[in-house]
Design a binder for these strands. Structure first.
Lengths: 339, 339
DNA sequence: CTGTTAGCGCTTTCAT
DNA sequence: ATGAAAGCGCTAACAG
């Protein structure tokens, strides 16, 4: 009696059968108390519960999953890790996921569509209950795969081409417009536009910006400057542009990460904002306490993550969804990098 | 014939039995080709492989795991997410893990020992093959739990009290010494020491520093300034200290994150490095391109992660381990924030 | 070499 | 209310 079953390999532990024996009942009944809902005589239930606690039993996730119960794991894939934008998104996601007792399987694609696809396939093989994906492109193959696998998912920081796919995204076009209107009220002779990694949000920001900028401005557009380091290479160009211009110049950098790089690099040669004003986008943490606090477009990054997670949780529990396309309104935050 | 088994629930898919039937053989044989090693007649193998490919079959991880095969998942828990130190560690980890086809289950504790413990327990329940933990303390309960569960793990960025626990850590004491020796060669009247979040690495850095600093210096020690924001609150204090002193002052901030905050905040009131020199620690990415590039102690963060991952992989595959305590030698990197 | 069979730990009919 | 038993998809003896 009482002898615990000998195990073939590994360090498996006490099972539901052991608990059943110890509590003088059957696996089925133990399973019932484990899963709450079913009716079990109170005394029985109590007896079982106490045995479970005494032995610190915790059911085997894999057996459970095999038997058809969801894994309670959510896959999260972001484009980049060392980027305060994404870390904040993830913190938002984590805050609601942990509330709902989901755990997350997180990976990053490094802007590589192929790696993104690999990760998503891995997640599917792991039977995650759902996925949050910061898609590298609106038509990313990963989106199609996810859809084909008919697993609940929401795209974040990107508006997918497929209108059936739920997403949470900042209103980038509107954000660009905001910046344009702001500058229209001022008086710069020349406007420089520097675009970050050339993905959908960046394109929309620039488009919204250019569509609404007063035409009289002299516009120079530099595209695809993805990183802060790249941004710094722009120092000379910008300084040169400023010299050529009679009056002050403004540069709109379509993401804060790069904007901060730009700012740092030109700070020694020109006065900010007197000679060169800078406007960023995202309002990541460092934007408010970099050398010259950055005027930028805020889009509540944390909530972008938390909304996405909430949406996903609803999707999974098949709650009636009010709205599965969430566009977050941007806000202009004026700080010291512009006059 | 050919009819795929009806499934009770969810969207399970084609199984090994289906493949067996389709290839006119048994599950066992299919399993054999799936797991490579065993001998199978070439023609048979080929037939099976082609069926597998045709149907895009991929074995169910959970069934596999239930049957005793490792999960090939590694748990990674770091103290903080929005911190370039940890993101770089994780990138290092990811680089080797993905090489070995492990996937990672990543979470962050936010310096909360309790959350750390919860996460580790979650990982154990998920049967991860191993764990990499940036322990919040050398005697963290999470370490004990991991050890008790006899699951392979390595601690990173911390030297655990328990000498049996494998770790990869920078030599923080030595790093502190390096800074002291460097300053001993110069001529400052006053030294300010600002300590970051008060964990083991920070303590050791300061200790190594103070133990080796020329005694004649006038030393002021400010402890437990964990974040960049907190660092900025120090502006006034530091400026005041500088004013009181006749000559230049140097401040050693025990991590770059905070150091950069400090630098930004005092830049308007004093000249760097003429009036105030700053030395940081870690050499995170922004250290080299913040306003005044930071003199700091580099410790090869990326490799801290990759070494840890390699060590863990070896631990898991029970390879003979040469050395399970890895101390990474720090290097002083002199930039423009010091004279 | 290949097939049969007995689990892995849990959930869930289906009787009782 | 409870128990027996049949899977879930896969692996690993054990026989042929």
């Amino acid at each position: 009696m009482g002898v615990m079953k000998q195990e073939r390999r590994g360090s498996s532990s006490i099972t539901i059968a052991d608990i059943a024996r110890l509590a003088n009942t059957s696996k089925a009944t133990v399973s019932r108390v484990l899963n709450g809902n079913m009716k079990v005589r109170p005394e029985m239930r109590e007896r079982i519960v106490s045995v479970i606690e005494e032995y610190g039993f915790t059911p085997n996730r894999y057996a459970r999953c095999l038997a058809g119960v969801p894994t309670h794991m959510i896959g999260v894939v972001v484009s980049e890790l060392a980027n305060f934008f994404f870390t904040e998104v993830v913190e938002g996601i984590d805050s609601v996921l942990s509330q709902h007792d989901y755990s997350m399987l997180m990976s990053f694609s490094n802007w590589d569509a192929e790696k993104e696809l690999r990760i998503v396939n891995m997640l599917i093989k792991n039977h995650v209950d759902g996925v949050i994906l910061s898609a590298t492109a609106p038509n990313s193959p990963a989106i199609a795969v996810l859809k084909a696998a008919s697993i609940p998912f929401v795209v974040v920081n990107c508006i997918p081409d497929d209108p059936e796919v739920p997403y949470v995204c900042g209103d980038n076009y509107e954000g660009g417009r905001l910046v344009a209107e702001y500058l229209n009220g001022q008086d710069y002779g020349k406007v420089l536009v520097v675009t970050g990694f050339d993905d959908q949000p960046m394109k929309l920001r620039c488009q919204g910006f250019l569509d609404h900028l007063r035409v009289s401005y002299d516009i120079r557009h530099y595209e695809n400057v993805p990183t802060a380091e790249e941004g710094r290479r722009f120092a000379d160009t910008i300084v040169e542009e400023q010299r050529q211009n009679r009056g002050p110049v403004v540069v709109f950098v379509s993401n804060d990460n790069v904007a901060i790089g730009v700012e740092n690099s030109i700070a020694k040669d020109v006065r900010i904002p007197e000679d060169v004003s800078i406007v960023g986008y995202d309002d990541i943490l460092p934007a408010s306490f970099c050398k010259v606090p950055l005027t930028t477009v805020s889009q509540d990054i944390f909530h972008m993550g938390s909304f996405a997670a909430e949406l996903l949780v609803d999707l999974i529990s098949r709650v009636e969804i009010e709205k599965q396309h969430i566009l977050i309104a941007p806000k202009l935050v004026i700080r010291e990098s512009t006059r």
